[in-house]
């Protein structure tokens, strides 16, 4: 069994009568940047929730570094950016990051919060309540929150949705730097161009089944679109 990456073995997830994932096999090696595409309702978010430990598979198993995410030591190494920001509206940007840093056992929560606020260009707004932030600023703060413990594995669920051009550029640069640092990243997106620009591997999920999983090298945006349409319409 692979010990240093993410591994899904025959993962099936049911919500009552609805089967969201059907025996998904997936391997993301350490240092890979895996981008997952798929139509709405394909099961992408469910797969990500299982991988980051928010949901349990109905059958099969999902592991990170050979361990299930419910183990607290592994959770230390995982950062998640979801549709929801996980931020407290009544806390300031700095307080939010310091709070999460403390929960992750970071040694100097305040200093780490400052450093991350600078990296997402929100340092000037460090004393403002998260509830007063725009969608783009909230998303940037959410990115900083996911990085407080300097995770080795990062899960991103449509992180570019609602971002303005400035925020999207900051975020894309941040993603590239994470990839250069050999972090293992799994990103769900509908934006083919952005996904392809950062991906080392690409997957397509359709009705709970992984119908495509290849390296991104040699893939162009036109080719990707063609493959996507083919696989989704098949």
């Amino acid at each position: 069994m692979q010990k240093d990456g993410i591994l899904c073995k025959k993962v099936t997830r049911k919500y009552g009568d609805l089967t969201a994932l059907r025996a998904v096999d997936l391997e993301i090696k350490s240092g890979d940047f895996f981008v997952l595409y798929g139509p709405n309702g394909a099961g992408k978010t469910t797969l990500m929730k299982i991988l980051c430990g928010l949901l349990r598979p109905t059958t099969g198993n999902a592991t990170v570094m050979g361990e299930e995410l419910h183990e607290s030591e592994i959770r230390q190494k995982v950062g998640v950016i979801s549709h929801n920001s996980f931020l407290y509206n009544q806390l300031t940007a700095h307080e939010n990051l310091s709070f999460y840093a403390e929960l992750y056992g970071v040694k100097s929560p305040g200093a780490v919060a400052d450093m991350l606020l600078k990296s997402v260009e929100l340092y000037e707004r460090r004393g403002d309540f998260a509830g007063t932030f725009s969608r783009g600023m909230t998303q940037r703060l959410s990115i900083a929150r996911a990085l407080v413990a300097d995770p080795d594995f990062i899960f991103l669920d449509e992180p570019f949705s609602g971002l303005d051009v400035h925020s999207a550029t900051i975020f894309r640069d941040l993603l590239r730097s994470l990839h250069q640092q050999k972090k293992t990243v799994m990103m769900i997106t509908h934006d083919m161009a952005i996904g392809l620009s950062v991906a080392s591997h690409i997957g397509i999920l359709k009705r709970g089944k992984l119908v495509f999983n290849e390296k991104s090298s040699g893939m162009t945006i036109d080719k990707l679109k063609k493959v996507y349409i083919e696989k989704v319409e098949q």
Binding site: G53, L54, R75, V78, F86, Y104
Partner: peptide
């Protein structure tokens, strides 16, 4: 935020 809490160790 409860999910954010449960994601932490």
């Amino acid at each position: 935020c409860i999910q954010g809490l449960t994601l932490t160790p």
